[in-house]
Design a protein around this nucleic acid. Structure first.
Lengths: 344, 344
DNA sequence: AATTAGCACTCTCAGCTCGAGAGTGCTAAT
DNA sequence: ATTAGCACTCTCGAGCTGAGAGTGCTAATT
């Protein structure tokens, strides 16, 4: 594989830059004019031809300007993009917003999605932190009416699961409370497996409750990702590449199919560390529907313990520098918030 | 105001029907052919002219067919539409889906949104049931680490609010538990106002906790509507009237602005009973962005106690019969589920 | 008085041409 | 290796055209 020369790298950067601004193919003349280059348009044309042969650029049609290919963007992002921190002012604004919000996880996640969407002018997605190891933390049983019981189950990590169920008999609140107390005493930090092994001496009601607890823990275990927060879907519609509704539809449909989303967010992430920002350009993300799009994703939370995913979806022509910095910054912010409020 | 003749009413129905199928202006010839009418196209043209003068129809341009106006749709929905029940098979499928799902509120709401979206081929929205009168039901305090405490507060109606906060000192779980027990004993069914009046003899920690409880209740009280579930946004994109992205953008942007949504769902509903289905056609819904759209909304839940809103958003050209029946059916289904699982 | 056949007229839509503009690739000169 | 010069190519929007759909009007019919 041939290497790009220094000059070609510069040109690639400029082409990417110009294209992200104008959304139109970039011509050799334009490039000279726009950036006052010390070389002639003819030279640029030669270089462009070379880069096209190497696969970094492509022409939408003969005698149009050049547009970066997937490979071109990939090279740009991996090798040419120096990632500036977000401007201090921006960072402060964002941080400020987080401290102004209700100090609650769901508010933070909603806000994170909103911040991502606004600062990157793209669709954003944030999943609630979720722990792979599901363990019992605390149980509460509340009698509602007749034989109906509301169970509130807190898992290690802070996930809260609730379930309403009926018993065969009416059980007074006192009995429920003492049952809860007993289970709380014995099951502290137990995983599902440990719970199975535990030899508890329970009566009928106790066993039903234990069954419900296990169900809920199983459910939580099976869950790949936590609750999903999205924002800025309309930003995508505003992009010129999606002026055709067909395109927009195929891109946004990803957001409406939960299992695809699960796949996308989990599979593409095998072995990624918290704090790494992953950029999926066009077809890299095996999803045909996203051929035109790029994804910028990052994990946040506490490695191997309690993690969520966040990121943005936009057209391949995306201000990667800005977008990546924003994703990284918000991911770190959420990681800090999760760490501060961790429930162990 | 002149009245429509019987024949004009029939024609209006047919025009609406034909237009919802084809999405194109309906011509007099087409109408005769399609429905084997016993009158000639010329007569229909005369009638059409009359109806256009009365404001029920309009021509997109000279010598095109007619399209129902907002007023036309309004008359059709109010006077001409006989609303069939959903076919038994459909109803069974839907019911079946609900009983197959995890028996949990959030799953039901998600499912409701999905069912609405699929059966009406439109965007759907469902808000979690929320009670105007906020009252204390049950409290739980869980020590997480150091002086951090996780509070889980169950409100009458079943809403669960959680909050993590820090105390000035490390308080053992036993102390927290007994504090919770005490508050549970005294605050049962208290509203915020009653809570203020209650003369509890609490220590520092107790007062902090009480403060947090009040905060959460205040927050819940201020909440106009509950959590929002949406689905089928892409269905809207698929409609031909939204082939132009601009249009689609303005319609969908409603879904992304929480305060507009709050307004829309609450304001348009003053004094509506559970079970009534409300149809907002085009500009009727004071929102300029929705000029092209219709909304079909219904409350569900338990009147004056615990209510949510659900509905669909589609183009004005909508299969109203089908859509209204679906909304009504799902609303009733959710009402039943809420009633069965009410936490009093 | 209501209905209808007949017909001229209007407007859209898809397809076509055409010229301007932007951009290229090649060649020959520097 | 670079560049000026130039012929060539392709898109895009404007303007034109004919077919098709649909109307409104008038005069005849029931």
């Amino acid at each position: 594989m041939e290497e790009l020369t220094e000059r070609q790298k510069i040109l690639l950067s400029l082409i990417v830059h110009e294209h992200t601004q104008t959304a139109k193919p970039v011509g050799s003349e334009t490039l000279v004019r726009q950036y006052s280059l010390p070389i002639s348009s003819a030279t640029i044309r030669n270089e462009m031809t070379a880069m096209e042969e190497m696969g970094y650029l492509r022409q939408p049609h003969t005698s149009a300007g050049r547009v970066p290919t997937e490979k071109g963007y990939r090279f740009f992002v991996s090798n040419l993009l120096q990632q500036p921190m977000l401007p201090v002012a921006t960072r402060n604004t964002i941080t400020h917003q987080f401290y102004q919000a209700q100090q609650q996880l769901d508010e933070w996640l909603r806000l994170a999605a909103s911040v991502l969407a606004n600062h990157a002018q793209a669709a954003s997605i944030v999943t609630a932190p979720h722990s792979k190891k599901v363990a019992f933390k605390h149980l509460e049983l509340i009698s509602t009416r007749a034989s109906q019981v509301l169970m509130v189950l807190v898992l290690v990590g802070g996930e809260i699961r609730q379930q309403i169920f009926s018993l065969n008999e009416v059980v007074p609140q006192e009995k429920l409370s003492s049952l809860a107390a007993e289970l709380n005493a014995h099951c502290q930090n137990c995983t599902l497996v440990q719970l199975e092994k535990l030899d508890l001496d329970l009566d009928d009601v106790g066993n039903i409750v234990l069954g419900v607890i296990k169900d809920q823990m199983r459910l939580s275990e099976r869950l790949v990702i936590g609750e999903i927060y999205m924002d800025g879907l309309t930003n995508v519609l505003a992009e010129p590449e999606f002026a055709d509704t067909e395109q927009a539809l195929s891109a946004l449909s990803i957001f409406e199919e939960r299992n695809k989303l699960d796949d996308l967010l989990s599979r593409s992430f095998l072995g990624d560390e918290i704090g790494d920002v992953q950029v999926l350009i066009g077809g890299e993300s095996t999803w045909e529907e996203l051929r035109q799009c790029s994804l910028i994703l990052s994990h946040y939370g506490i490695q191997d313990q309690l993690t969520g995913t966040l990121g943005i979806l936009g057209p391949m022509r995306m201000p990667y520098g800005q977008a990546i910095s924003t994703v990284r910054f918000v991911a770190n912010l959420l990681s800090d918030l999760v760490a501060e409020n961790l429930i162990e």
